[in-house]
Amino acid sequence: MMARKFERPDRNMKVVKPNSITFDMHEKNMTAHQLNPDTWVDSYADYLFNYAIARVSDTEIAKDLVQETFFAGLKSAKNYKGDAAERTWLIAILKRKVIDYYRKINSKKGKAEVRVNYSSNGDSDGDWIEEQVADPFSSFENDSLENEELGVAIYDCIAQLPQKQSLVFTMKTIRGMSTEDICNELDINPSNLWVMIHRARTTLMGCLNQNWFNL
C-alpha cells in the first residue's frame, strides 16, 4: 500500500511542479512508519527477553528467540504499516516464535520413547490418583505463574520511563550494580543517581498500582 502511495506523486511530479509539496507530505508520512532497527536492542531486548523467559524458562533459548525475533522483524520490516507501536509489533512476532519453538520440541518428543512409571524410584505401589490430587493449601503453583506475569508487568512499566531513568533503575535494581560503578559508567554523581532512582521508583509505584493492584 505504501508503495502505491509513493508512486502516484512521483508520476505527477514530472507533469507539474506544485505537486512536489504533496510529495514532501507523503515522504513525511513514510518516515512516520519507519522502524529503527538500530535502536531495537537497546529499547526492547530486555522486555522481549523477559517475555520469552516467562514462557520458555531457559535463558539460552529465550535469548535465541529474541534474536530470531529481531531477524524476523528485519525481514518483514517492509510489511510494517505503523498501526501498532514498534514494541507491540515485535511482541507479536515473538509470540509466533514461542509457538514455533514449542511445536518444534513437541514434534521431537513424539519420536522419543515415553515411559510412565508409578514412581521414579523403582517398583512401589500406592494410590496413584490420591497422590496426584493438588494440595489445596499449596500456593506454590500459582506463585510461579503470578511471578511470570509480574515480571512482564514490571517491564511494561519500566518501558514507560524516560530512557536515562530506566537505564539507571535496571542497572541498580536488576543487575544489582554498585552506586560507584554506575556513576563511573554513566558519568554522573551519586546524588544525581539517587534523584533518578527516586523518580523512577515513584513512577513505577504509580504504574504498578494501576497494572498490579496489590502494591
Binding site: A45, L150, I174, L208
Partner: peptide, 13 residues
C-alpha cells in the same frame, strides 16, 4: 516495590 522486583526475579541481558 523492592519486594515485588525481587519476587519477579527479573532477568536482564
Amino acid at each position: 516495590l523492592t519486594n515485588l522486583c525481587q519476587k519477579a526475579n527479573l532477568q536482564n541481558l
